[in-house]
Amino acid sequence: MQRRSFLKNIAAAMAATAVVPHVSMAADAKPKGPNEFSLKEAVAAITGGKPLQTSPKIKLKAPEIAENGAVVPVKVDVDSAMTDAEHVQAIYVLATKNNNVRCAYVHLTPANGQATFGTRVKLGGTQDVLAIAKMSDGSFISASQNVKVTIGGCG
């Protein structure tokens, strides 16, 4: 009997420890960011319902594995002549699973000479980085890349 009650006690203790962190997690739910913004909203706001095309013209450079999610270099190159008639109007960089997916919206002009934009972003976890380019003819092209994050950079 002693052995049995001992086992019962252990089982009860294990159940208690299993429940406690669960409860504290629920009470400590992630706070909502001041600018929480979903990917759907962001893409709809950018394209206005137009389809996104994948194209070899847009190149997104980001590391496949990021050791530190707080500093992830991202570079977007769009192949364009950047003349008044045909240029890239804007480059959008989105982190698809961040609290606020918007990272940078860059409005370019033909004076840039080349459609490039680079920055460093924070990623909260493993996710896709999406780059969208708005061309002067009104079409949208996009590219995305998955970045594996070992340590998150947000929150």
Binding site: A70, V101, A104, G113, T119, V121, K122
Partner: peptide, 13 residues
């Protein structure tokens, strides 16, 4: 937005 890293860098041409 705030998703950029601390001490941000912006590069363009």
């Amino acid at each position: 937005w705030e998703s950029l890293s601390t001490n941000p860098l912006f590069s363009t041409s």
